Computed example of a mutant assay.
Amino acid sequence: MKAIWKDTVVAESDDTIVIEGNHYFPADSLKREYTLSSNHKTMCSWKGQASYLSLFVNGDVNPDAVWFYPNPLEAAAEIKDRVAFYKGVQVID
């Protein structure tokens, strides 16, 4: 699977986990040179608190387009050390 934004592959892995229609990629498959830190957080009742990263590609920013659960709740333990995408990021095979 590949995560693509602005014609740039920002993550690639054959090891994704699909939860609620979202592919969670291993965190080490994320190309960190395309990310910026973010203070944004959200809460999920069964996964826990999500943290976010923004994407930065060719001078364009996609705020909070990457999310992850640094300390997921037990029900979501399988997505620890994984990242997912939205806000126009295409995930293709």
Rank of each mutant, 00 (worst) to 15 (best):
S13G: 03
F56M: 11
I17E: 12
I17P: 02
T42S: 15
R32N: 14
A27I: 15
A75F: 09
I79V: 14
A77Y: 10
Q90S: 13
N39H: 10
C44W: 13
I92K: 14
H40I: 02
R32I: 09
T42I: 10
D64F: 04
A11F: 07
C44F: 03
I4W: 04
A84Y: 01
V89Q: 08
L30Y: 09
W67V: 02
S29P: 02
E78G: 00
Y86M: 01
K41I: 12
S54I: 09
K41Y: 02
V57Y: 06
A65C: 05
K6V: 11
V57D: 05
Y86V: 00
T8M: 11
A75Q: 14
D7A: 13
N39I: 04
S29F: 04
K2R: 15
V89E: 07
R82F: 02
L36Q: 14
K2M: 01
V89W: 06
D81C: 03
E33H: 08
D28I: 07
V61I: 15
F85E: 07
V66I: 15
V9H: 06
F85Y: 09
N39E: 15
Y86Q: 02
N22A: 13
P26L: 02
A75K: 15
K47A: 12
K80I: 11
S38G: 08
Q90I: 11
A76F: 06
A50H: 03
Y34E: 00
G88F: 10
E33W: 04
A65Q: 02
E12H: 05
P72N: 08
V89N: 07
H40P: 00
L30D: 10
C44V: 03
F25M: 07
F68T: 13
L55Y: 01
Q49L: 00
S51N: 14
I79P: 07
I19V: 15
S38N: 08
I17Y: 11
S51R: 12
P70F: 09
V91T: 13
V83T: 06
K2L: 03
V91R: 07
C44P: 03
T16W: 03
A77Q: 13
T8F: 11
S45H: 13
N58I: 01
A27G: 14
L30R: 10
Y86K: 06
L73R: 14
Y52S: 09
V57S: 06
Y34S: 00
D60A: 15
K2H: 06
W46T: 06
G48S: 06
A50M: 04
K2G: 01
